[in-house]
């Protein structure tokens, strides 16, 4: 296990005040916020920053860490002496066990046994029964999975209390069947796969929130599927029947005569399957053939001469 210098992570001096630590954390929390950061490793850095903050913002954990870490350098191999934490009482719980599951092994080794784990052991001894917590994870699927159904392997890292009351991080791999017709925002509930219960009570559930990976052509909104459909000028002007590829198979669609770019066609029942199935929504985009050959130029020139068409006529009214 490598020693982690939490002061270096937050960029503060070892004698920084609580206010300086808070300011440094907020600055980094903004910089590495996963929703807005443009840094490539934002999520990982945010985890490190959260971990450093969880320790340094808590006076008890900070004091214990300072005492333990004296003379150690970051990255150095490190093993805490037995009962190193005797005399410290950890009470702060700004970060839940679910959140600290993302922290490093260094953190889990040092502070994994505090708070909830002790409380759980105490309750168990006095006959306390409580159902385990529900856990929540996100599962990223291909859009095609909702058309065919799929089995996905999901790895989860969750804290687990050992017989000594210490919390260890445990990686579990689950094979989960994804039902056909699932759509983004839905939740798959796996009964009994959450946190274990206390005193013989049942385990909690695992809630898997479904999201789709970005698809090059389709965008899903609920059960409806959106895509842009490129059409030739003559297909738009004269009407046509064109084959449209779907995530699974294809469908023939009638383009109405006189269609324009930006018009939306709704094909009922060809979205994500279900009861009822969603619709397929096609945004028409008229694509012009390039005037690269003499013949193509001639055709454009004939249209220009004979159609007397002014696309900006309305602007002149």
């Amino acid at each position: 296990m490598q020693f982690k210098d939490y002061y270096q992570t937050l960029g503060v001096a070892r004698d920084a005040t609580a206010d300086e630590i808070k300011k440094a954390f907020r600055k980094l929390a903004r910089k590495y916020h996963p929703d807005v950061s443009k840094e490539a490793d934002a999520e990982l850095r945010m985890q490190e920053v959260n971990e450093a903050h969880a320790v340094l913002s808590d006076p008890e954990k900070r004091a214990a860490y300072d005492q333990l870490g004296r003379g150690h350098r970051p990255g150095e191999t490190f093993r805490p002496p037995p009962d190193w934490d005797a005399g410290f009482e950890f009470t702060g719980q700004a970060y839940s066990p679910g959140e600290t599951a993302d922290f490093s092994d260094f953190f889990a080794e040092l502070f994994g046994h505090m708070g909830g784990a002790h409380a759980g052991t105490r309750h168990a001894r006095t006959g306390f029964r409580a159902q385990g917590e529900d856990h929540h994870a996100k599962v990223l699927l291909d859009l095609e999975d909702s058309f065919t159904g799929a089995t996905r392997q999901i790895s989860l890292r969750a804290p687990k209390v050992d017989p000594q009351g210490r919390v260890q991080l445990e990686t579990r791999t689950l094979n989960v069947k994804i039902p056909k017709g699932v759509h983004a925002g839905q939740v798959i509930r796996l009964a009994g796969q959450g946190a274990p219960g206390m005193g013989g009570a049942p385990a909690g559930d695992l809630l898997l929130e479904v999201q789709f990976k970005p698809h090059p052509r389709f965008r899903a909104e609920g059960r409806d599927l959106h895509r842009t459909l490129p059409v030739a000028p003559w297909e738009a002007a004269l009407g046509a029947i064109v084959a449209v590829d779907l995530p699974q198979g294809s469908v023939k669609v009638r383009i109405p005569e006189g269609a324009q770019s930006g018009r939306q066609l709704r094909v009922r029942g060809h979205g994500i399957p279900g009861q009822p199935p969603g619709d397929l929504l096609l945004d028409l985009q008229v694509v012009l053939p390039p005037a690269k050959t003499p013949r193509a130029r001639e055709l454009y020139e004939t249209m220009a001469r004979e159609l007397a068409f002014d696309p900006r006529a309305q602007e002149k009214d």
Partner: peptide, 21 residues
């Protein structure tokens, strides 16, 4: 080995489930 979950409708989570998760 394959776990088969129960698909919850959009508005199906309870207050306690959201709070715990």
């Amino acid at each position: 080995d394959i776990l088969i979950g129960c698909l919850m409708e959009d508005s199906w989570l309870t207050l306690e489930q959201v709070a715990a998760a």
